[in-house]
Design a binder for these strands. Structure first.
Lengths: 209, 209, 209, 209
DNA sequence: GATGAATGAGGGTTCATTCAT
DNA sequence: AATGAATGAACCCTCATTCAT
């Protein structure tokens, strides 16, 4: 069924995908309206179901699509040769931000889908992305130069800590954006990076020889 | 209107609150069905609206109720006299876990409500809890013994990092629980604390003199 | 059941009657809320049904009550000895207006009840008031001095015409009041009578010798 | 939205219109049930709202529809060239009766809607029909031959009186019909006209030279 | 392939009425 | 007598999904 969709003229595919992505991320799974999607995509009601079968399957397709696109973009741009752990994590964090800015609807959709409990992602899909992530991680951290870390530090623990700090900092920024629309508009990416680097510096000091 | 509810026999109150809490946290605001709530609570449809007026007001009441209960419990048990930053944060983290285990539905509900975009919590309520949290924080960190930190470390940054690590660790555990119900059942709180303490030890080493 | 109501302290009776009268005339039968009535009357929900059994029976009681009161007032004040047809009809029309001004809620209620099709007045009640009206009419027109009419005029026809003109004029005024609240406030009863008398003069000229 | 409805097969349109017209006029706006309407029209619940959006819009559409149909029919059949006031009013009255007999549900609906306080017709619609009526009236009475009236009679007053008599007579007949279904079935239109003409004769005698 | 009219289960909400106290 | 908590049928409306064209 989705084969049919994929052999559509690309412009129409894009129109439909963007319409659905936007609607789902703006209103959540349950609240999103297939009526609204077809209106945004300028196609008929029947066609949507002709291609995707159900709202749920459409959502699942979008999840697959978004994750693939996001992860591919990510792993094609990351510099696997970097051996410094902190530099690599910093690079990953900044790349993530770059991708969010490049595909905001797509990212919002992924966020929404992780959060919407009205809905369970198909295990197969989850497994697929778990596998991609696992494989990506191992490649990412394969060639880390452990000798830079202070004695006795486990690299896994250190990695987790740095990532959690990155996430915590990111969430704080996102919350500020949510609360204060002005903040979002004026968000100076450079200022953001500078602040992030403060934390990085602290961690470097703490964990590096 | 809610006064009527509050002067009900406690058992019935509990039944209704639990039913609603469970339904909302399982299915999200929009998806939650008042039909299902009354069925779970074993009361008539009309009664729910007799007490709460609308689904929205019910949700708002639950939010208020849950937050109050959770925060009160938290702040009544925390040891404000502790001056060691890491000990205090560890204590807070463990207390939080204890509370989650004690009121799991309540915690799930709060999580859901923070995430559910189909619904905007009344700003007044949010402000109220923001105020409680802010005041709690300042009391919590009022008497920290800064002299234990290595020179040049900003206490705010250090606090944030430790909290983010706690959150990151907590999320990892919650995800495991979500993915694997067995894990949840067998969750050995002591094992959990031990693992958490590994991270705490690393951070202590990193930040303390 | 209504016996119980009638042996209530008069003040409470009045409170209930007025509350119900007002609610029904303001919002129509279906739209009227028993909740609102008990609130206005400051009695409990159960009591209303204790006395009247159902919303419908309450309405029926009010119909009976209002009609009785209105007709009694009317027939007690009309001058049956007047023999001039036009004077008698003019007197009746003005008396009606006086009563409307005296018991506006009551009159509104009667109007509402004649118009509300969501509801059928019990035939017994209708018959009762038909009988009263018929008997009143025959007394009213018993001693008319027919000799004043031009030759060949049937008194019944003339009476009907004059009454219809009165009604038509009245309706026109009511419509203006409905459309323009200012008109209602500024309504000068004397001006109203003067205009009415214009029509009366025309009819007198037309029908009297 | 209503465009969709208007491009439906006429038979279905009629079925829906008649069902709604009947339900509204039988039970009033508030009491009328959309459930009942769809049952009568033999369509699904959703379809009604697909076409009309809401009960209120459906009602408004019917009001517009009925008024247009009624007024168009009326003004297309009336003989504007008639210069005799009484003949013209008689013609109008009989035409009105003819139309009521032709579209009874439609007429009942209009009556109901004028009377139903649970609902305020959109001012725009009211204005529209006021304008039509006003323009119709002025055309209707433009070429009246005033010279036939007795000296000193104001044509406006005379017109009003004749119309009010027509209305009064009409109401009396309608009431008889309501009270006694047999009367309605046996209603001999010719007998009716004859009786009406009695009043017309009296008025002619009274007002014409 | 493409359309959009048509469906009907389910949603939140109201309210006259009942009944234990 | 008096209360008001409790009921549940009926209300209007939404929306994913189907299907004849």
């Amino acid at each position: 069924m989705i084969q049919k969709f994929l052999s559509l003229e690309p412009e129409k595919q894009t129109r439909i995908i963007n319409a659905a992505l936007a609607e789902f991320s703006e209103r959540g799974y349950k609240n999103a309206s297939t009526n609204e999607i077809v209106k945004r995509a300028n196609i008929s009601k029947g066609l949507l179901f002709h291609y995707f079968g159900s709202k749920k399957k459409l959502f699942l397709f979008l999840y697959d699509y978004s994750m693939n696109l996001f992860l591919n973009d990510f792993y094609s741009k990351i510099d696997f040769s970097e051996t410094d752990l902190i530099k690599k994590l910093r690079q990953a964090a900044l790349l993530k931000i770059e991708l969010i800015q490049k595909h905001p609807d797509l990212y919002n959709f992924i966020l929404t889908s992780m959060v919407d409990d009205s809905f369970e992602i198909k295990p197969e899909l989850e497994d697929k992305f778990k596998a991609i992530a696992r494989e990506g991680y191992s490649r990412l951290f394969a060639n880390i130069d452990v000798s830079k870390l202070k004695e006795g530090l486990d690299v896994r623990h250190v990695t987790e800590i740095i990532m959690w700090v990155g996430q915590g900092f990111g969430n704080r920024v996102l919350e500020q954006m949510k609360r204060d629309p002005d903040y979002k508009r004026d968000l100076d990416i450079q200022k953001f990076i500078t602040e992030y680097d403060t934390y990085i510096a602290i961690l470097k000091n703490a964990f590096y020889k």
